[in-house]
Write a protein that binds this DNA or RNA. Sequence first.
DNA 1: CATTAATATAAGTATTGACTTATATTCGTG
DNA 2: CACGAATATAAGTCAATACTTATATTAATG
Lengths: 120, 120
Amino acid sequence: MHVFEVLADPVRRRILELLARGEMASGEVVEMIGAEFGITQAAVSQHLKVLRESGFANVRAEAQRRFYSVDVAGLRAVDAWVGQFRNFWEPKLDALATEIARGKRERRNAPITKRRGKRA
Amino acid sequence: MHVFEVLADPVRRRILELLARGEMASGEVVEMIGAEFGITQAAVSQHLKVLRESGFANVRAEAQRRFYSVDVAGLRAVDAWVGQFRNFWEPKLDALATEIARGKRERRNAPITKRRGKRA
DNA sequence: CATTAATATAAGTATTGACTTATATTCGTG
DNA sequence: CACGAATATAAGTCAATACTTATATTAATG
């Protein structure tokens, strides 16, 4: 399942927000999410499965308990994709990349101009 | 439609990547996306509608043509949500927030310790 | 070792949303 | 003003997925 499909579900987003505060046993997640969304243990378990299989959560077993925690892999993937566009609202550092893009665009229709300075 | 649902669709993600290179007329988008995904003009138009209604794209009319461009609003919203977790893999600047979270977690089960210093 | 606790899985259902074809709208142009 | 070009919308279909209930698995415990 693609990272953005994973985060498209509000329950999964909420679970991640809970895990951000520290690892939680499956049962704790079931309680909180159950209270907030009114869904069953099975449903929560299925969401946890999605999160773990898509790189958003890690599991650690302790007796019958499963402790879930945030796995950054998924979040980094999302961040990387959004990063493609970050220069659109944060021109500060990446001004060069922005310049290149804008240059390309404008040069397409621009009138021909004599260039001065070194040539190969 | 929630921002993450918007980006859950590969066609919409691709459209945004195209728009990142500069504004495009609807027709141009239809050509490129049609070629890549094999879908009709109507389908692309519907995706453009979603993008514009969810704050990911702006439209500008010129005669019968509609020129689409990236709107950062949606992307910023996504970035903000992911930002909640950024300290998980970028502890550098936000070390304080990370510290607070970790502290909370550990204090839960920690042995009681005498605290020193000012009190209210 | 039978029972209970904690979690996962199986199987079925219902809703959502991404398509399709067909049609409407809007504008320039002969 | 009729027509063609560019785009949007309407209506219907189909597949994906988020649920449900029921059951399986695994481990501690009396």
